[in-house]
Amino acid sequence: MFSRRTVVILGVLFFIAANILFLTIGSRSQTTSFLPYRVTLSLVAPLQEIFTRWIRFNEDIWKHYFYLVTAAKENNRLKQALNDAEAKLNQQEELTLANQRFRRLLDFKQTAAREVVAAEVISRDPSPWFKTVVINKGKSDGIGKGYPVAMSEGIVGQIIEISKNYAKVLLLIDRNSAVDGVVQRSRARGVVKGGEEAQCMFEYLLRKHDVSVEDMIVTSGLDGVYPKGLPIGKVITVERPHAGIFQHVLVAPFVDFEKLEEVIVMMPPLRHDLETGR
């Protein structure tokens, strides 16, 4: 009835249509958690954690030890003394830096007015098209899907997938991320969406609203995810096109997403209060 060529073409068209349907359903159902993915995350994440710890350990050795050995070749007598001194100094510097980071986290924890859980980033998204990280805290630590993730500098993102001990965080700079924000100075409201090259766009800001370069954008608290007043970023460009009702505003996030190491997950106040009976 049909030639072989027609059957092949129809088959390919059918598979393309089925594929598009499958991906569309997949993208729509991101609000619900998928059990097999949670299981896979639980299986792969420990390996990633081991690798990450191993890399950091080796980086420390590389940065703090090997170059000392090279320097020591120039002067044998000074080698031991220099080694010891530098090792102690590096250790101290590392401790100071860690101390500073933890102090900032602690300060943030005290000012956050919510219960928070500190977590470590153990892996990043393999695709350059999506911006997510995996952290080493999960359901067993009391965190859940949709919880906001932040640092002392500002917001990082929100949890989109969670297993017992690990969670996947959608970063603020991902194209699919959207945060309700306000200009701190003028209180003009808009939506901060992930943009290009680790920057964000402040969308739906009406032309009449006052915004200028260097203005700080903070969370409005109206999206029901992030608490009000958390820093998001700083305005770097403002464009007012001749046509249209919105301004084009570009925002540089305060968080350096390339150097994410430790983050904190914020618990919802209502749920926590209910659980603890406070």
Binding site: N19, F22, L23, T24, G26, S27, S29, Q30, F34, P36, Y37, R38, T40, L41, V44, S123, D125, P126, S127, W129, F130, K131, T132, V134, I160, E161, K168, L170, D174, N176
Partner: peptide, 17 residues
């Protein structure tokens, strides 16, 4: 493909596809 899909932020089944 399934393992990659569980680690990325894209739609379900993107890597498998």
């Amino acid at each position: 493909g399934f393992a990659m899909d569980s680690l990325t932020g894209g739609p379900y089944g993107l890597y498998l596809t």
